[in-house]
Write a protein that binds this DNA or RNA. Structure first.
Lengths: 335, 335
DNA sequence: TGGGCCTTGACAAACGTTTGTATTGGCGTC
DNA sequence: GACGCCAATACAAACGTTTGTCAAGGCCCA
């Protein structure tokens, strides 16, 4: 159906290798012939077949991205950055989502490998490097916020512990002492680290860690709602809550509002991620920002370096940064 | 690097066509040999090359998806549905974003076509079918909420006019008479239609259409902020606003809060899309839901039908549905 | 006038599959 | 015992490129 290089060769009366060279602007074909062929190709609506090309060049110019879900704004923003950066280097990103299930994640990776992607970026994935070995071609793999942390020189992470500390420190500095924490999915390492930061900072301030103030959450708003409802039954009530991420914080705020509380007068809320919508929430959400765009861009560059044969494997821990907005204030609002 | 079918053939002492057939469970190879070969393949970590296979089968089992940006939750949710549905049929989706720029959109399509995707789904894309013709293979194309509407039997749309009418009717029924409207990007057809629905419903109720109440917005929260700030300068102030989408509504609410208004007491707000976060906003957002999942799934099935040779091209207009939540109430809150 | 070099293009192999056709050997049938 | 048939496998072409090598012709210089 689509014209091939051979069709053009036949039309132009040259061999098809000449057409190939003409189209790739090789100096080995006379300028005049080159132009003639290029014009002919355009007229015939020729579009080279990346699949045929990949077969011989053994490059697909494609990067696989594995993520649990793209409907989480944090992931969506990271992926967007990955895609844009890849595009700059003429690479295309192909993203597969795993729904957070390990099995689907492995299947997704398998599918990407079958498609012979040149590299794979794991975003908050749960599988480890060893899970990938021994199946098909071994391509460079870089992970972002990998949930099963392993530091082999190919990971990019945000400083979750410090993020947790910053969030907690801010609340402590405001005067809060009953500070609750809603965790993420229990098996996720970033959740563990944020909680660790929370605990460390409390201890640094000499505030006892009250385990009833730490409740299991998740990564979506309904998880935040449930967790907050639990916290609201506590007496005395916590005056502040540090949430695993912004989505959970949103749910927590919903539950607080539903209970008739006002934010931040009755309850201060801190999130994590700084999704694009955070500044527009009511009240604008105080949150710990991750350098999403940088993380995506860095991942792509690491893959590309690896592809170029650079051996400089180096783990990167990027700083997180607290953004203070309207959802936090000193304690003391009346009931 | 990775083992190929020939490597297996050599090891197994059979021809490579036999290996190919064994791996695809062809009955033409004896069960015993088949098992032996399959086991050998597994041991050698063999993963078939989709690129080689695609070259001969002329199928990539890949669907291209073009979208302006995946960080818009509405799009993200539609894409997720596309991806999941595609997966059910063993297809993989590869999404390319255009940033809403026509040029990048055409480039993205070109890249997808070079990769020989089996079909293309355009999500709120601005280019038309004719833009795709004559370049490379012509594959089935289905569009969702295409911004340049053309009804050639391959489009899926939500009933935007009716959605606009439902939103406006709800506000009118609550007693509002000064109802503002924040539009989307001016060139987008869905924005035009939602506005049309707004106008129609006002006229049906005999309420004069006041053009100063219709302000140009966009599709992101900051657009909503700007538009709302303009609306808040009006005297008398509008008591309700119908926004192009949920993101804009979020911005509008932010501006209203910043001006000291309360929602819905002083201002009722209606959005469009029903993003997953809508029920968790403060107040929970009344909005017009689009059947996102259905739209994505339908698009995939239409492509697959087309690939299967079905000629039953048929445009689909899906119903929109108003979801009443907390951001709307009768007018009459005091200043 | 002939040898060598440079430019231009042709030839052909290779990438890793799928798949139609040919081949081989064994068996049953008459 | 010859024939045909079936099962099992081998052979080879094809998919659409890239790229290394080879050939032809023109030119320069001796």
């Amino acid at each position: 159906m689509a014209a091939s290089i051979k069709d053009i060769a036949r039309q132009a009366g040259v061999s098809y290798s000449t057409v190939s060279r003409a189209l790739s602007n090789s100096p080995r074909v006379k300028a005049e012939t080159r132009h003639r062929i290029q014009q002919l190709a355009a007229e015939m609506g020729y579009l080279p077949s990346a699949v045929a090309r990949s077969l011989v060049t053994r490059r697909t110019m494609t990067l696989g991205v594995v993520v649990s879900t793209i409907t989480d704004l944090f992931f969506a923003e990271v992926i967007q950055s990955i895609e844009e950066t890849a595009l700059q280097y003429k690479y295309q990103a192909i993203v597969a989502s795993s729904n957070g299930e390990r099995l689907r994640e492995l299947e997704a990776i398998r599918a990407l490998l079958e498609r012979r992607v040149d590299g794979i970026i794991l975003v908050s994935a749960c599988c480890r490097r060893e899970d990938l070995a021994g199946n098909g071609p071994d391509v460079p793999v870089v992970s972002i916020n990998n949930l099963g942390r392993e530091h082999l020189g190919y990971s990019i992470e945000v400083d979750d512990v410090d993020g947790g500390r910053q969030a907690t420190r801010h609340l402590l500095a405001l005067g809060h002492r009953r500070i609750a924490h809603i965790t993420g999915p229990s098996e996720d390492w970033d959740s563990v680290e944020r909680r660790e930061g929370y605990t460390q900072e409390l201890q640094a301030w000499g505030v006892p860690v009250d385990s009833s103030l730490i409740v299991h959450g998740g990564n979506r708003p309904p998880d935040g709602v449930r967790a907050m409802e639990r916290l609201l039954t506590l007496r005395p009530r916590p005056t502040a809550v540090f949430c695993y991420n912004d989505a959970v914080a949103l749910g927590a705020m919903r539950a607080a509002y539903a209970a008739g509380l006002r934010i931040p007068q009755h309850l201060s809320v801190v999130g994590f991620d700084d999704i694009d919508l955070a500044p527009f929430l009511e009240p604008p959400l105080t949150t710990v920002a991750q350098p999403k765009r940088e993380m995506g861009a860095l991942a792509v560059r690491m893959i590309l370096d690896l592809l170029a044969g650079e051996q400089s494997a180096q783990d990167r821990v990027l700083p997180s940064r607290l953004l203070i907005r309207g959802s936090t204030a000193p304690p003391g609002g009346s009931e």
